[in-house]
């Protein structure tokens, strides 16, 4: 059957809808760029696993012992491969950092978004963001030269108070140290918290400022003042963005290396007292990778076992963040 004649009008429509070669090229280029980042991620995961699997296959190691052993001494003559001391070190410094960054960052965000006038905000915000531009090495030294010495009297006072309570409640218990070591997880965590304050404040402020004015007017219209409107209406409306900023702060704190490597001491320490020294997963990795361990040795592979633990921790936080964002997304 012969094709019916195509009218000129239809022809021009066909020409316009057909993807021209140049557009195909652009589309392909964009696809490559998108795939590239996926490949990088996949490559990193592959390297992590390919080095970690032989580690767990080694006769001296088992996944069970990895998770339950209370000591991490792969470089000593008596080797223990329990990751928990490093995980606990990571969790302590992260928790302390968040205890500093979340309240301070949120309060700053509320103030910037709901109270500060435009001029002040334009000055304060970039200055705050400078905090995260300071090299982390500098923060590490700030922790041991300023924060740890400054914490000393506070800690001594606190520890003595705890000990006196302990003596009356549980007379048999051994008292905790009243001296704060120079390298401790507490000061490393506090300084790390200061570093991530702008992550929380900046993102939370963006989230709160994108809450429509109509919602604020609704609250003011009921007779609410600024603080009530900020805390009871704007904050919950922006919760999804604020939660995202917290998750970012957690990921940043879990992955932070330099501050904890410098200021927390590098002895893996399974402890309930954050005022002691400790090592985090990242600090261990940097410590070992700077030594001269032979490639392929068991000690070398511990880096990847630690790395994979870190990978799963951050993955868990990111999934939690995605869930939180979905859970609290508001359709104004």
């Amino acid at each position: 059957m012969t094709q019916a004649a195509i009218s000129p009008k239809e022809l021009s429509v066909q020409a316009a809808t057909r993807l021209r070669p140049i557009e195909r090229t652009i589309e392909f280029g964009l696809l490559l760029a998108a795939i590239f980042s996926v490949f990088i991620t996949a490559g990193i995961v592959y390297v992590l696993f390919s080095e970690a699997v032989p580690f767990f296959r080694h006769p001296d190691v088992s996944v069970w012992k990895f998770l339950t052993d209370t000591e991490w001494t792969p470089l000593f003559s008596v080797k223990h491969f329990g990751i928990m001391p490093l995980v606990v070190g990571t969790l302590w410094t992260t928790v302390i950092a968040l205890l500093v960054a979340m309240p301070v960052g949120t309060i700053i965000a509320i103030w910037l978004s709901e109270f500060a006038n435009a001029k002040v905000r334009e000055i304060i915000k970039p200055v705050l963001e400078l905090l995260s531009a300071v090299p982390t090495v500098v923060y590490g030294y700030f922790a041991i030269t300023v924060v740890a010495p400054a914490m000393q009297p506070v800690y001594t006072w606190l520890a003595e108070a705890i000990n006196s309570v302990l003596a009356t409640v549980a007379p048999g218990a051994s008292p905790i140290a009243t001296e704060l070591p120079l390298f401790n997880m507490l000061s490393a965590g506090i300084v790390m918290g200061i570093m991530i304050v702008p992550y929380v404040s900046s993102l939370s402020e963006d989230a709160m400022r994108s809450v429509p004015m109509l919602l604020r007017e609704g609250s003011y219209g009921m007779g609410a003042n600024r603080l009530t409107t900020a805390v009871r209406v704007v904050f919950p409306a922006a919760l999804s963005g604020i939660a995202a900023s917290y998750i970012l702060a957690i990921s940043r704190a879990v992955g932070e290396t330099m501050i904890v490597a410098i200021a927390a001491g590098q002895q893996p320490n399974l402890t309930a007292n954050p005022a002691e020294g400790g090592a985090t997963i990242t600090a261990y990795i940097v410590q070992v990778s700077m030594g001269d361990l032979p490639h392929g040795s068991l000690e070398y592979q511990t880096i990847f076992a630690a790395g994979i633990t870190l990978f799963f921790m951050t993955l868990a936080f990111n999934l939690m963040g995605a869930w939180l964002r979905k859970r609290y997304r508001q359709a104004y």
Partner: peptide, 28 residues
């Protein structure tokens, strides 16, 4: 604030707060 306590307003677009139905009405 006193005037807003005495005179309520209903807006052009519905603007419920990101709260429960109960808490929206209980807000004022």
């Amino acid at each position: 604030i006193e005037m807003r306590m005495r005179i309520s307003m209903v807006f052009q677009k519905p603007n419920p707060f990101p709260k429960s139905i109960f808490e929206n009405v209980a807000y004022g």
